[in-house]
Simulated scan of single mutants.
Amino acid sequence: MPGAPSISTKSDKDFPRNIPAPQAFSDPYEQRAFLKFRLAQAYRIFAKYGYDEGVAGHITVRSPQGVHFKLMQPELLLLAAYMIHSAVHEARPDILCAAHSHTIHAKAFSALGVPLDPITQDSCAFYKDLSLYTEFRGIVEDHKEGQAIAAAMGSSKAVILQNHGILVATKSIESTVFFFMSLEKCCQVQMLTDQAAAARGMKPRLIDPENAADTHRHLGSEMGGWFNAMPEFQLLEHEEGKRFEYLPTQ
Rank of each mutant, 00 (worst) to 15 (best):
Y127Q: 08
L130N: 05
S123R: 09
Y127W: 14
M83K: 15
S101G: 09
D122V: 08
F109I: 06
R92Y: 00
Y82R: 09
T120S: 08
S101R: 05
A99S: 11
L116E: 03
E90I: 00
H105Q: 11
L130K: 05
A106R: 02
A91N: 01
L96Y: 00
A99Q: 05
A106F: 06
H89L: 10
E135G: 07
A91V: 00
H85L: 00
D129T: 07
D122E: 11
L77C: 03
A80R: 11
D129V: 02
A106E: 12
I84V: 14
F136G: 10
L79Q: 12
L77I: 01
I95P: 00
S123N: 08
H89Y: 00
I104T: 15
L79E: 15
K128S: 11
L112I: 07
Q121G: 13
H100G: 00
Y127T: 13
A108E: 08
F126D: 03
C97Q: 02
L78E: 09
L132S: 06
C124D: 01
L77G: 02
S86T: 14
H102M: 04
D94S: 09
P118N: 04
A87Y: 01
F109P: 11
H85Q: 00
D122I: 03
P93N: 06
P93T: 04
S101K: 02
T134G: 15
Y82H: 15
D129I: 12
Y82K: 15
T103I: 09
A111Q: 11
T103M: 07
A111G: 12
E90V: 07
H100A: 00
P118M: 01
E135S: 15
C124N: 01
A106C: 14
G113V: 04
Y82W: 14
H100F: 04
A87P: 09
V114G: 01
L78P: 01
S131N: 02
I119D: 05
R92C: 03
L132T: 02
F109G: 10
I104L: 15
Y127L: 11
H89S: 02
V114N: 06
D122M: 05
L132M: 09
F136C: 11
K128F: 03
S86Y: 10
R92M: 00
D94Q: 06
M83C: 14
A91E: 03
F136V: 08
D129W: 09
A99I: 12
E90H: 05
I119F: 10
C97P: 03
I139L: 14
K107V: 12
I104A: 14
I119T: 13
Q121A: 12
E90C: 02
A91L: 04
M83L: 12
A111M: 14
K107G: 11
D117C: 09
L79C: 10
P115L: 10
Y82N: 06
S123Q: 02
L130Y: 04
P93A: 06
I104H: 14
L116H: 06
H100V: 05
H89A: 00
K128V: 06
Y82T: 12
G113M: 07
T103Y: 04
R92N: 03
K128D: 14
A106M: 08
I104R: 11
